[in-house]
């Protein structure tokens, strides 16, 4: 098969974005639908076709999204307007734009190490993740289900909470 000559091939740009919370589980297809839906909702089908977005890969909390050159602004706006995927609230932040995937891969930082902890608040045990910078993502479970609560280590004092690691320390 004869390939298109470089002058006829469409120019593309790649956008590196970070997903919060970092442990959000979804495949690239779900992320693609979220991005595509957001572009269509903000700009309509015609612009969405021109943006020609696609999710290329996901590495940990990072995702690389492709678009046509000159349409990066629309793509980044649409990414900023994403609020949830499958009913789970998330935030996707565009970090960098480049013409090559390799350049964006260099910007991907290793996943921040988190320690699984158990917090005791008002005699109720709740599990969570403690990050090196003092952030805590607490999973609060009750009759209605479970929800994430975002706090810091300093906040634990206000709740009169005690924190223990899985090894009991």
């Amino acid at each position: 098969m004869k390939h298109l000559s470089p002058t006829l091939r469409e120019n593309r740009r790649y956008v590196l974005a970070r997903i919060t919370p970092p442990d959000f589980e979804s495949d690239t297809r779900e992320l693609y639908y979220a991005v595509s839906d957001s572009i269509t909702s903000l700009y309509g089908d015609c612009i969405a076709a021109e943006v020609h977005a696609a999710t290329i890969l996901r590495e940990g909390e990072y995702v690389i999204v492709r678009c046509r050159r000159g349409r990066e602004t629309e793509l980044c706006s649409a990414i900023a307007a994403i609020r949830s995927i499958n009913g789970t609230q998330i935030r996707i932040t565009a970090i960098a734009t480049s013409g090559t995937i390799a350049a964006l891969r260099k910007k991907i930082r290793p996943k921040e190490a988190a320690t699984a902890i158990t917090c005791t608040i008002d005699a109720e045990e709740q599990s969570g993740l403690l990050y090196a910078d003092g952030k805590i993502d607490l999973i609060r479970r009750d009759m209605k289900g479970q929800e994430l609560v975002y706090l810091t280590k300093d906040d634990m004092e206000k709740f009169h909470a005690t924190t223990t690691k899985p090894d009991g320390i």
Binding site: T73, S77, A80, R83, R91, T93, Y150
Partner: peptide, 18 residues
């Protein structure tokens, strides 16, 4: 109402451009 609802200055510039 959550850290997931907060947007950076750059994102706010993009959204207000709408």
């Amino acid at each position: 109402r959550s850290i997931l609802g907060q947007r950076s200055v750059r994102e706010i510039i993009l959204l207000t451009a709408l």
